[in-house]
């Protein structure tokens, strides 16, 4: 499971970084989304991987920490998802405004001459 998770994070982060270095705004926003997925999975992984362990204390089982998974990274991931979603949505609006105002989807607002 560790291998799958780290591969997933690595592939998404790599593709994300490649895409945000591309010249089109749409590529950049997809890159940012992929990067934020990678980061969210990474935060999740920082709580150590556990299968079948709940994050919330069950009154029947008692409060032995060995029975539970760390709830803090899950809370952090939730916050990060919300914030990431909001900022990506905002970026999408700016992207559309830029497209409308400059007539091109290049990140600099002008088409390079050699294309």
């Amino acid at each position: 499971m560790e291998l799958i998770l780290s591969l997933a994070i690595g592939i998404m982060a790599g593709s994300g970084i490649y895409l945000i270095l591309r010249p089109r705004t749409f590529q950049v926003i997809i890159g940012l989304s992929l990067l934020s997925y990678a980061v969210n999975l990474f935060i999740f992984g920082m709580g150590r991987l556990r299968v079948g362990a709940p994050p919330i204390i069950n009154p029947v089982l008692g409060s032995n920490p060995a029975l539970y998974t760390d709830p803090v990274p899950q809370a952090l991931v939730l916050t990060a998802i919300v914030i990431g979603f909001a900022t990506t949505a905002l970026f999408l609006v700016v992207l559309l405004a830029s497209r409308g105002l400059s007539g091109t989807d290049h990140v600099d607002g002008v088409e390079p001459d050699n294309e």
Binding site: L32, V39, I43, P73, I83, F91, V94, V107
Partner: peptide, 28 residues
């Protein structure tokens, strides 16, 4: 303004993602 804002937003979004990675590493 929109063009400069676009660059500003991308740079800061990437920095925010780095912040998350850093916070997660430190917490971990």
């Amino acid at each position: 303004r929109v063009n400069a804002g676009l660059h500003y937003i991308v740079v800061n979004l990437v920095a925010s993602l780095l912040f998350l990675v850093a916070a997660a590493l430190i917490y971990g």
